[in-house]
């Protein structure tokens, strides 16, 4: 593991805060482990597409905190929803997030991911990555928080656009027009639609 770091960086870590450096490595490492696992699955020629998706789902479910994501997305609407509605929302939202994330990552299978920076404050971390493709560099950063000793992702920011903020504005508008049950119905329909699509 240590071989991955060049010596100056390693010294830099030690020179600053030893404890912070330790936590620092683990936030980026957490993202790296998951991203590497996903890319590994995508590049695995022995698996067909549905099998790949299933495997990736497992990796994502371990790293993404869908409950936190759901709360952030719904904001005030979260508290107005019943427990059952909340549970239903988390399930559907997880499904949609996974789909969006997977289809984006699939498009960039052959590009390299560079881990450019990391900011840690207490139990929060932002891990900046760069997807390097032949024609562009796409900044993707992951927001994580420490929960029971594990770093979990609660937002993904692609080129300055936070996935959660984006969902929030759209979903709020749908709730305003069609109510919470209307939103859930729309999500259910979308999930069914995605499940029936061959890709």
């Amino acid at each position: 593991m240590l071989k991955r770091f060049s010596v100056p960086i390693l010294i830099g870590f030690i020179m600053t805060l030893a404890s912070a450096a330790f936590a620092a490595a683990s936030a980026t490492e957490s993202v790296r482990i998951s991203v590497d696992a996903i890319i590994g699955v995508l590049k695995d020629a022995k698996l067909d597409k549905p099998a790949k998706r299933d495997k990736i789902r497992v990796v994502i479910a371990e790293r993404f905190d869908f409950r936190a994501m759901s709360q952030r997305t719904l904001a005030t609407n979260w508290k107005m929803a019943s427990k059952e509605q909340q549970q239903q929302f988390i399930g559907l939202f997880a499904e949609l997030i996974q789909n969006t994330y997977i289809s984006r990552v699939e498009a960039y299978t052959n590009e390299t991911v560079k881990y450019s920076a990391e900011k840690i404050t207490d139990d929060r971390a932002v891990v900046d990555t760069l997807i390097l493709s032949s024609s562009a560099e796409i900044p993707v950063s992951y927001k994580l928080y420490l929960k029971d000793g594990r770093w979990l992702v609660y937002d993904v920011n692609i080129e300055g656009v936070s996935l959660i903020n984006n969902y929030r504005t759209s979903y709020q508008e749908i709730v305003k027009k069609e109510g919470f049950p209307g939103l859930l119905a729309k999500m259910e329909e979308k999930v069914r639609e995605l499940a029936n699509q061959p890709s």
Binding site: L96, N99, S103, S170, I174, L183, K186, M187, L194, Q197
Partner: peptide, 9 residues
Amino acid sequence: KDALDPYLF
């Protein structure tokens, strides 16, 4: 494919 309402997204 993914968005509930592509226009809003």
